[in-house]
Each structure stands twice: as C-alpha cells, then as structure tokens.
Amino acid sequence: MKKKILAMVLAGCMVFSMAACGSEQNNSQDKKEKKEKVTFVLDWTPNTNHTGLYVAQEKGYFDEEGLEVEIVQPPEDGADALVASGKAQFGISFQDTMAPGVTGEDAIPTTAVAAVVQHNTSGIISRKGEGMDRPKGLEGKKYATWDAPIEKAMMKNVVEADGGDFSKVELIPSTVTDEVSALKSKSVDAIWIFYAWAGIATEVAGLETDYFAFKDINPAFDYYTPVIIANNDFLKDEPETAKKFLNAVKKGYEDAIEDPKEAADILCEASPELDKDLVLASQEYLKDQYIADADSWGYIDPERWNSFYNWLNENGLTETEIPENTGFSNEYLPK
C-alpha cells in the first residue's frame, strides 16, 4: 500500500512538473510574441553617433524591455518625415534642422526626447596653415555651403564676430561626402563638419588641418546636434514604451563610454563596410562627449535649447517665433 501511495505521489509530481514546464514555455512564448515593435530611422549611414543603439541591440537591452527594434536607413526626404508620418516611432534629427517645423501651421509632429551628444561638436575644418584657423580667415576662401538660411546666418555671425567680411567668403554649393579628398584636391578650402567623424577621419588619414568650433565663438551655437526624436502621437499613446526604449538606449551609450573598443567592434559588426580604424578613433573621442558635463546621458538643458531658438527668433530665421521650451522633452528619459 505504501509503495502504491508513493508511486501515486511521484506520478502526481511528474504531472505537475510537466504542466509547470509547459506553462513556463507558453509564458516565454507569449512574452516573445507580445514584444512591442519599434522602428528607429537613422539620419545617415551608420556611424559612431549611432553606436549606443547597436550596443543596446547586440547586448539584448531592447529584449529586456520587451521591445523588438528595427534600425533602418533614412528615406530621401529624411528621418524627420518618416517619424512625423508615424512609420517610424524614433529617429535622429538636429535642433537646427528641426527649427522650421517646430511651430506654425505646418508644424512637424515630432519631439526631441534625448541628446545623443551633450554639446555641439561641429565647426569649420580647413587645410593647416592657410589662415582659416579663425573665422576671419575664410575671406577669399572657398567654403562648401549647403545653401541653408540658418547655416549661412551662423557662418555670417562667426565671421563678423571675428572682424571679417562674410560677403568676401566664396560660397561653393556642394554636398561634400569625403572631407579628406575634398580638402586634398583643393576643390574647397573649408567645410562644416562634425569633428567626431569627419575631423577624426582627417587625423586617421594623416591630413593636417585647422579647425574652429561654433560653440567657442558664440555660446548660442552650443545647441543640440544630434538628438533622438519621437513621433508625438506615439509619445501620447505609448509613453511607457518610449521610456523603455530610452532606458535601453541609455544603457547602450553608457556601455560605449565604458568600453569604446567593444562598442566600436559592435558597430563594425553591424556595418562591416566601415573603416575600423576610423570607428575606433571616433569612439574614443565620443566617449567623453556623449554625456560630457551633464548629470546623465540624454538630458537636454532647457537654457541651451532655448538660447539657440531665441537667437533664431531675434534674427528672423523662422516664419513664426519659437516659444521657449518648445520641441523637446526630458520626460521620457530614465529617472
């Protein structure tokens, strides 16, 4: 009788155990099926501005938040348009290029929700020793312009602040994609670059250059570039998903700061066409720029954000005046 009872107990335990395993597998399967899909659109081909995204994806940080994230290339009309349409929930943009769509009847329904890099690391690069280490030196030189109103207004501001005459700068309409070749060939003399990529590229190539940063000349130009933007309807309808996404991305950028080489390897694995030496050198530079002097990654300082848009307002560079604290939010960042 005791043996029969023991056998019945063991059988019951096995049935319970199998049921529990089955239930656990079903729960795991349900969890996988219930992952929320998020599309992130880049501003350009993959580079070290984007590393934190790829680290978060590779290390499973998105998975931990119950997210399935697809990182896509931008369409011809750019990341902003795709995010505004709702076909992508997040993307990369820039405070200066966002400006025309922040307010007015044709306002674009997007919001900057995180700063990728804390300070503006862009400026003007030129061949070394040709006098363009300061803005006044651009007089009589060929500058590769995008022919954008805000761009030219900023150039005029820094040249004149240095006592120069902006009308004497030769504006060459050009979209330079290889700064090293453009400078070596002397097709242009000066180019607006982001130092973390194009500036580092000249160093890796052994090309000696001069450089000045916009933020060092006019503090109003220490604006946020690049930023992560999100679709406004998405933020309204799924704020918790937005927070989960940014929590994972924050971890990715923090890892890139902690171990630049590992982060560079992850980016190169995702985009094998990239120059490994350039990626590693750029990653080393950016490890000190992602957070810089902020308390944490992603934070947007309202004072600095407002300062740039106030400058645009004062110089009539927007169709409608941009009110302060417009176009960005720190609400979705991890607390």
Results as ranks from 00 to 15, higher is better:
F245N: 11
F245E: 11
L246I: 05
L246T: 09
L246Q: 08
N247S: 15
N247G: 15
N247T: 15
N247D: 15
A248H: 00
V249P: 00
V249W: 06
V249K: 00
V249N: 01
V249D: 00
V249R: 01
K250A: 10
K251C: 00
G252L: 04
G252P: 04
G252F: 01
Y253K: 10
Y253D: 06
Y253R: 10
Y253Q: 07
E254M: 06
D255P: 00
D255N: 07
D255F: 06
D255H: 10
A256K: 07
A256I: 10
A256W: 06
I257A: 12
I257T: 11
I257E: 13
I257L: 11
E258A: 13
E258N: 09
E258V: 03
D259Y: 04
D259E: 11
P260H: 01
P260L: 07
P260F: 06
K261C: 02
K261R: 03
K261D: 02
E262I: 03
E262S: 11
A263H: 03
A263N: 04
A263L: 06
A263K: 05
A263Q: 05
A263G: 06
A263D: 03
A264F: 14
A264W: 12
A264P: 14
A264Y: 11
A264C: 14
A264R: 09
D265R: 06
I266R: 05
I266S: 05
I266Q: 04
I266D: 04
I266K: 05
C268R: 09
C268Y: 07
C268E: 09
C268P: 08
C268G: 11
E269H: 15
E269S: 15
A270N: 09
A270F: 12
A270H: 12
A270P: 04
A270V: 03
A270I: 03
S271T: 14
S271K: 12
P272S: 01
P272C: 01
P272K: 01
E273A: 15
E273K: 14
E273F: 13
L274K: 09
L274H: 12
L274D: 13
D275F: 12
D275E: 03
D275R: 02
D277M: 02
D277F: 03
D277A: 10
L278N: 08
L278H: 09
L278I: 13
V279Q: 04
V279I: 14
V279S: 06
L280Y: 15
L280A: 14
S282D: 07
S282F: 13
S282G: 15
S282E: 05
S282N: 07
Q283Y: 00
E284A: 08
E284W: 02
Y285M: 05
Y285D: 05
Y285R: 05
Y285T: 04
Y285A: 04
L286D: 00
K287R: 10
K287I: 03
D288A: 14
D288L: 10
D288N: 14
D288S: 14
